[in-house]
Structures are given as structure tokens and as C-alpha cells.
Design a protein around this nucleic acid. Structure first.
Lengths: 338, 338
DNA sequence: ACTTTTTTTGGCAGCGCTGCCAATTTGGTT
DNA sequence: AACCAAATTGGCAGCGCTGCCAAAAAAAGT
């Protein structure tokens, strides 16, 4: 890991001080608008800084004012994937709100792997971030230890089904699954199947399924069938899985998908076969991706407040409140497919 | 921007040195596996570091070995948006390859705004990144100056239609547009329309359209009609725009969309109206989003190597080669809608 | 004019780490 | 046992910035 390029020393605060004919501390004060200085000194420093093209070195800044100035201005963010728009949405909410407060986002992608997450946590911690944002509540014991002793704020986002380390912002995935089942049952479906992706990795999807099955059980029902594919969720997987499922268990009357991606694939499968939706089979997804709203029949799904979760994480992080869980809820997006 | 939390001093290299009964330099050497040290010293240091839960401070590390060790290990990345999966794809390629080499990604989202980009560049530069990755070739003059004097590698990704500052990795958007038009013309379409989003901001889309129109002109044709929506691309916008277009100019026989998002919306529009695709109207998109492959009729579009662009940026960045452009090309995804 | 108060200023010690260098230890040779 | 080369080690000066403090300057009061 080396990048070769012009080594030419960059302009430092000392250069600006010399140029402006003042002391280093004065330059520092002026540049941060912190402490008092005369109008004249202010002008000269600003002028010199501009002329020299001074760019502050926040590495040095964070090192110096470590104890007092409270952190480095970096916030570490770990998400499991970038392939599913759900996580970029979270990121969008986060960076949007963080930027405004002057924090920079350092990101890591764990690929749904707790070991990888552990490594990323260590790596990010070495940048002395002001806070760390993780996805989900499940981490390796080593990760938990490291986080507890890091002395910084930690937010776990998206899932509120369980105890968190510090702040938790999201919604109950169990409740989402439960409500989804209630909706399907209420609509009169009785032979309900599940189509999902790799549940060993996507623990939130597993929790939704658990909630879903719990609701079925409460009504004296159970999953009529299910079809799981290896690997991450995708439309292609959803399409293939529904295809396989319907061939295997033709009397299914509704399908709950792990995700809107998958459900969209399922919808395409139905279109391809000419199956009426929801006449032949009803489809229900999760997350309410933008795309699903413009389908000829809007997808029946659950709207999850992803942008708002990101934004709320950023706010709570900087607000300095007590630890705790913020449940932002979810909302049925009725649609026309179930 | 302050985050309150346990101030408790963290373990430093000096603590580890004391604990292991060796000097600081030895600890530093052992921990980085750099320079020589005895096996015994190595073990004692490692043991002490683990026991104390030592986490290196890369802020200090980067500050110290600045001139020689070549950069901070941070790479700044600026993308215009996170709402369109195209950019997370780029990010995915980048972070994936960067992680392996020990770099951390610091991201900024410019919202397609050059001024915002300028501010982000300044902000990122203050972290003394080893390199900066930008999107597109168009920047404010101030951004260009800052970048030129920063003395670090700069990569501009996705667009190769124009001169770059240092490294450029992507494909020719003009050529994409041109090839798209050639395809439609070759298929016999003669009343071709364009449906797009805000071109003032998305300069790549504008270049594609320019290439598209150039190809039409070469065949003695011109756009039969066009429909532009304000704001960013989205399926909803694509659907609405195609709806409006077809009402206004019913004899259109093919539509070129600024983006697959938009095209997918267009496809949904056709499904809703019961229009045969491509019989009533042909649809052509851009970017080959995964989703479009599982449509009942796969979308006709251009596959752009987004992951590979990200990966290549990361590689070139760290390879230390000369400035220049890497054109990764694109590929027709024939599909069944045009 | 002289003291007191307030404002402004510069010097300097770190922050935690790395690179350099000289000192020490080790291992092998004669 | 004396000697030399190689391996290992610790001390220390900085990296660029900030916080603290005392000194200097300016403003205000008698």
C-alpha cells in the first residue's frame, strides 16, 4: 500500500504564520474562529492562507486536541453490502446528516461476515473515529469487547430486536414479519409460502421470517412451503426461486419474500408465466423499494424508514444523549399484489 | 460537532513498551513487522499488546511517517449520489479492492453539485488522503487548482470523454449513446424519442444523448421527440415521462432512456397500458442494472463495467503508474425490448 | 501620567507514532 | 580469549496542530 507522487512539502500553519507576520497560535485561532484576535490579524492571516493555498491538516489537528476537542471528526460506518439499495439508503441518510455537522464518513463493507466486521471495527478504531455505526445487533465477542473499551459512541442500526451496545436505531424486524403475516391472513390467504435468500448471513431477514411464522402460528397456521436460495437477495434469485416453488407446490396462494428485490423477481416470474397476481398467487415483499411503486400493480410490501434511520443515527450520535433504542417503526404499503 | 463520551486515555505504544519491557521503537517495529527484532521481543510485545487491548493510532502514524511512508492510508471518494445503484456499484468495486491493500475509504456525496464537490474536495484533502477519487471530468476551476496542488493521485471515474487531471477510468459515454442509436437504427426504428432526467446535472447522461443524436444525424435522422423530467432519474419518473410522451407523440416507435431506472419505469408504463414491447414501442436503457435481466423480456441496454471501474481505480491508484486514461468499454445487452 | 482591566499575542509542551542513529548484544572467527 | 560483522535495541527528534500560560499591547478608569 504505497502511492508514489510529488512529495513536495505542503503548506503548514507555520508557513502561514510567517507569511502573515504573526504567531502560529494566532493563525490557528483565526482559522478556526476560536479564541480572540484583532480584526487586522484576522485579515492578514486569511489573506496569507489563501495566497499560500493552505489546507489544514486534520490528522495533526485531531492528534493534538484529542482529549478536549472530543474526537477526530471521522465517523466509521460498517454496512453488510452495497449491492442491495437498502444499505446505500441508510448511508445516504447518514452522510447527509453527518456532512452538515462537519463529520466525514469512513465506510467499510462487511459482506455479511461477522469476522470481516470484526476486522473492520479494528481498522476503523485505529482512525480514532468520534463514533462507529454498525448494522444489526449481532457481532463477534471480540467485536463487542473492542467496542465496549473503545470509549466512543456506537450505534447499531436497522434492527431493534434485542439489546444494543449503546444506541440502537431502527425498527423491529420481527414485528415487520409479524405484521406482514397478519396482512396476508387478513386477506384470506391460507397456503402461504416463503421465498428467501441466505438466512444464515442476513439475520434481519431471519428475524422477519421468525415474526412471520409466529403470526401464522397464532392463527393456527404454518408455512405451506418455502424455497431458499444460496447467496444474497436479487431479482434473479427471486424469479428462479418462485419458479421452482410453484413447480414443486402448485397450490400456494401467497408468497412472502425476504426482500423487495426477491419479490420483484417473483413478480416478473408471474408475468412471464401469465399468472394473475394476486389471483393465481399473491406476492408480498419487504422494504418498499422506490421501484416497486411504479410497477403496473404496486407491490404489497412494508415501507421501512431507511433514510430516516440514517439521519436519526447521525443526530443521536452527535446529540450526546443516553444510550437506548429508537424505534422508527414501519408502515404497510398496501399495493396491489396481495 | 461534539460527541461526549468516556474520555479515559487509551493504550499507547509507550504503555505496551513498558508492559513488555522493551523500547517504543521495538514495539513499533514488531507491530508493523517492519525492521528486525528478536523472536523473544516479538512475542513479548504481541502478548503485551493483546493483554492491554492496544489499538494503534493511525492518526499519529500518518502524521509521523508523512514524507516517507507515502500518505495516510485514507482514500477520499466523491460520488454524486447514492440513490442510483450505479454509484454504490462503483463504490463496491473501490472499497473491495482498497480494503485488501489496507486503505480506508472516506466518502462524500456531492448531489451532482460542483460547488458541493468543491467543498468536499477541500474537506477530504484536510485528511491528507493518499488519493482522491472523483466522478466525472467536470469540476469547478477552484477544485481543479486544489487538486493540482494537492500532490496526490487523482482518479476521475466513469467518463472518458475529455481530458483528465491524472488518471481516468471509465468508458466513453458518447460512444455508449452512439452505439445505442446504431442498434436502434439497425433494428429499423425510425421515429425514435428520448426520455431523460435532469441533464444539467447529470453530465454523463447528456454526453450519451449527444452521442446518440450524432449517430442519428449520421443516418440523416433526428430525435422524433423527447421528454425530460426535472430531478434525478427514477422508475416513477420514467413511467410518467413515457406516459406523457406517448400521449403527446403517439407515433413514436422506439424510446432511448437516460438510464435503466427510467427505462424500467417505461416498461411498467407499457405493461400498464397493455402496449406490446417492442411491437408498439421499443425500449432501450443504459447501465444494465441487475434487475433488468430478470424481467419477462430482458431490457435492451448497455452493460457498463461499474464494478470493474471501481476495482481498476483502486488498482491504478496504488500501482504508481503514469497518468492516463483507461477505457474499460461497454457491451450491448441485447435483451428483448428493442 | 499612572494604574487597572481587558484584549491580543507568541512560545512552547505535548498528542502518539515513526525514522534515524548510535549503542548494545549476539554469533561466528581466528 | 580477543576480535569483527551482523543483528537487535532504545533514545530522541520531529510530523502539524492545539491548549495553556505568561507577556505584551490596547483600552479604560482615576
Amino acid at each position: 500500500m504505497t502511492i508514489h507522487q510529488t512529495p513536495g512539502r505542503l503548506v503548514t500553519i507555520a508557513d502561514v504564520a510567517r507569511e502573515a507576520g504573526v504567531g502560529e497560535s494566532t493563525v490557528s485561532r483565526v482559522l478556526r474562529g476560536h479564541g480572540s484576535f484583532s480584526k487586522k490579524a484576522g485579515e492578514r492571516v486569511l489573506e496569507a492562507a489563501t495566497r499560500l493555498g493552505y489546507v489544514p491538516n486534520r490528522l495533526a489537528g485531531s492528534l493534538a486536541g484529542n482529549a478536549a476537542s472530543g474526537g477526530s471528526g471521522l465517523v466509521g460506518i460498517i454496512i453488510p453490502s452495497l449491492a442491495n439499495i437498502v444499505f446505500p439508503d441508510l448511508l445516504r441518510g447518514l452522510t447527509g446528516a453527518l456532512d452538515v455537522t462537519g463529520f466525514q464518513s469512513v465506510i467499510g463493507v462487511s459482506d455479511y461476515d461477522p469476522e470481516r466486521e470484526e476486522a473492520l471495527v479494528s481498522g476503523l478504531l485505529s482512525w480514532r473515529p468520534a463514533a462507529l455505526v454498525l448494522t444489526g445487533l449481532e457481532h463477534t465477542p471480540a467485536t463487542v469487547t473492542r467496542l465496549r473499551t473503545a470509549g466512543i459512541r456506537v450505534v447499531e442500526m436497522i434492527d431493534t430486536d434485542g439489546p444494543g451496545l449503546d444506541l440502537v436505531v431502527g425498527f423491529s424486524n420481527r414485528a415487520v414479519g409479524h405484521a406482514s403475516a397478519r396482512h396476508l391472513i387478513g386477506r384470506g390467504y391460507r397456503r402461504i409460502a416463503y421465498v428467501g435468500h441466505d438466512l444464515g448471513r442476513d439475520l434481519r431477514a431471519a428475524k422477519r421470517l421468525a415474526g412471520f411464522e409466529a403470526a401464522l402460528a397464532e392463527s393456527g397456521m404454518a408455512l405451506h412451503a418455502s424455497e431458499l436460495v444460496d447467496g444474497p437477495s436479487s431479482s434473479a434469485a427471486g424469479r428462479a426461486a418462485l419458479d421452482a416453488l410453484m413447480a414443486r407446490v402448485p397450490d400456494v396462494d401467497a408468497v412472502y419474500f425476504s426482500n423487495d428485490d426477491m419479490a420483484l423477481g417473483g413478480y416478473f416470474c408471474c408475468l412471464g408465466h401469465g399468472w394473475a397476481v394476486p389471483g393465481r398467487v399473491a406476492l408480498f415483499g419487504c422494504h418498499a423499494l422506490d421501484i416497486t411503486a411504479s410497477m403496473p400493480q404496486p407491490l404489497s410490501t412494508m415501507r421501512t424508514p431507511r433514510l430516516e434511520i440514517g439521519r436519526t443515527c447521525a443526530e443521536r450520535l452527535t446529540a450526546g444523549g443516553p444510550p437506548g433504542t429508537v424505534d422508527l417503526g414501519f408502515e404497510l404499503s398496501e399495493g396491489a399484489t396481495a
